[in-house]
Every structure is written in structure tokens, then in C-alpha cells.
Simulated assay, not measured.
Amino acid sequence: MIHKNGLPSDKLLPVLRDILRPALIWAAHFVLVYAALSAACAQRGLIDPFWASLLVLVVTPPAALWAIVGARRRGRSDFERAARWSSIISALAILFNAAPVVLMGGCG
């Protein structure tokens, strides 16, 4: 059966997964960055800011690369374009999540 967006029904679920995966990766990365920096910059200083920054800088490239995987979709349906844009936007958001760590370098 062909869905009204032009994709066969059996191809719709993988495309929807490709739309949601990058956003979930971004959300997990955001929580990790926020938690690490909050723990480092808390009054009690739960972890050293160096280790928090290092953690963020180590997990950012794999998260951005994993998020950008959906951008390889080259289809012309609306869902496939949405998957591509979701990947691109989420990868950029992941890089921007790490920007304060790079630019500030501490708890300032």
C-alpha cells in the first residue's frame, strides 16, 4: 500500500525512526552536558571542571556524527526531507551545546 506521502507503508517506520533518532541524540547530549557542567560548577564542586569539560569534549564528536547519519537520505518524499533536516539541525544543536565548554573553559 502506498501512503499519501509517496512512501510505501513498509518504508514509513524506518523514515520516522530517522526523523526522531537525531532529536533524541541531541536531547541525551544536552542532558549530559548540563549535568556535567552543573556538577562541576556547583558550590560543592562534585567533580573537577577539567573532567567535566573533557567529558563533554569527548562525547560531542561521536554524538554529532551519530546524529548526522540520517542526512544521507536522498529521497524526495516529505518524510525523507524531514529526516535529512532533523539530522542536520540536531548535529548543529549538539555542536552548539558544547560551545560554552570550549568558549568559557571554566565555571566563570
Rank of each mutant, 00 (worst) to 15 (best):
V15R: 04
A98Q: 05
F30L: 15
L54H: 03
I89Q: 07
S86Y: 00
A27G: 14
A98D: 05
I19F: 04
L13M: 13
A42R: 10
A27E: 07
V69T: 10
P100D: 12
R74Y: 05
D78Q: 10
R81Y: 10
I68T: 04
P14M: 06
G75V: 10
E80L: 01
P22Q: 06
A35P: 02
A98S: 11
S77E: 09
A40D: 02
L20N: 10
A36P: 02
P62V: 06
A35M: 08
I2T: 13
R72I: 07
G105P: 06
R72K: 13
I89E: 01
P61Y: 00
I88G: 10
F50P: 00
A67P: 03
A67H: 04
I88Y: 07
L103F: 13
I89K: 00
L46Q: 03
S53T: 01
M104G: 04
L57T: 04
D78E: 11
V31S: 09
S38A: 08
L12A: 10
C107F: 14
A28D: 01
D48A: 14
L54E: 14
L37I: 06
P14A: 07
V15D: 03
G105V: 12
A39L: 12
I2V: 15
L24P: 00
W26P: 01
H3N: 12
